[in-house]
Simulated scan of single mutants.
Amino acid sequence: MAFILLYLYQGRPLPDNIWHFLFFMQSIEGIDTSFFNVSWSMAVEEIFYVAFPILIVLFSLVIKQRNRVFWAALICMMAFSMAVRFGWDYDLAGWDTSIRKSLIMRIDSIAYGAMFGIFITHISRRAFYISVLCALMITVFLLFSWKHMATVPYGRIGLDLVFIACPVVCAAIVTYAVKNWHFENTDVIRFLADISYPLYIFHPVFLKLFFPDGSVPSFEKLVLTVCFIIAFSYGFFRFVETPILKRRPRY
């Protein structure tokens, strides 16, 4: 809605498929650059929030154990995206727009985060070291094969590493670090956590407002813009999110 108001304010015509964006359906098979193109990630997130509860309800009809219901729903989401990535006839040369930003190919990304957030809350030291080693190996592989991502088999292997191995490895490292190095108790981490969602939601709106032509701003203007976005995000958290969260038990 903020982008619609921004377009109207700037006198720019809205796209014919504006309803796709309002219902987060604009990137089912790839990114749509006609309007608010960075919203592809929000589309992945919102559709997951719609599809996952439906799967929970369906699996709960045949599975009685609650933990198994969640696992079944998560595995179903992961398997779906993995099957689409393997079975879809796509052009690897355009993998960034047609694969990385495609809703049906990336909906499992939220599932990996949910898996660690709900079930995998403890990472042993051995698993942490293995994860760090895997992260280094993945980085080395991608560095040497990045220019071959549009070819087979480098592209298939590289995409699997980017979309499956990287999220799992990074989640394991972060989980271990937070639990053992007490990052969650620092003021900086708490502040970043507080403003993270409004920062994620509103930063493209302000960037489009302040730099409508997409030109590279001066360093001073960029710093001022970043400071303004951070301040706005904190204000949104403080005066909008916090009051709603305090009233949450009433709803």
Rank of each mutant, 00 (worst) to 15 (best):
V140H: 05
I99M: 01
I157N: 05
L133S: 07
F52M: 10
E46M: 04
I63W: 10
V132M: 13
S39I: 04
A93N: 05
V84A: 03
K101E: 14
V62E: 02
T97Y: 09
A73D: 10
A150T: 01
S98A: 00
F80M: 02
D108S: 03
R106N: 13
W40V: 00
T139K: 11
K147H: 10
F116S: 06
Y154A: 13
R100F: 15
G87N: 06
C166T: 13
G155V: 09
R125V: 12
I110M: 09
M137K: 00
S41F: 11
T121H: 05
L159A: 09
K64E: 04
L74A: 02
I118S: 03
F70V: 10
N37H: 15
S131M: 05
D108I: 05
V132H: 11
I123M: 10
Y129E: 02
A135R: 00
L103Q: 05
G155C: 03
I47P: 11
D91I: 02
W88E: 12
V62T: 15
T151S: 10
G94T: 01
G117P: 08
S34F: 05
E46K: 02
L92K: 10
A51I: 15
S39P: 01
F86N: 07
W88I: 03
Y49K: 11
R156W: 06
H122M: 04
I164S: 08
L74I: 15
M149G: 03
R85W: 06
R85D: 07
R125H: 01
D91E: 14
I164R: 06
R126N: 07
D89H: 07
F116G: 00
S34L: 03
S131P: 07
M105Y: 07
N67F: 03
V84H: 00
I56T: 01
H122C: 04
W40L: 04
V132T: 10
H148A: 11
V168D: 01
T139G: 13
L61G: 01
L159C: 08
I118R: 00
V57A: 01
E46H: 08
G87T: 08
W146Q: 05
W71Y: 13
S98H: 00
G94V: 00
I157S: 07
V140W: 14
H122F: 11
I47G: 03
M42I: 15
F48W: 14
C76V: 03
D96H: 04
T97A: 06
F59P: 05
F59T: 08
T139H: 11
R68K: 08
L55S: 01
T121G: 02
L61Y: 13
I63P: 11
F128G: 00
M78Y: 02
V50D: 10
Q65T: 07
M78L: 06
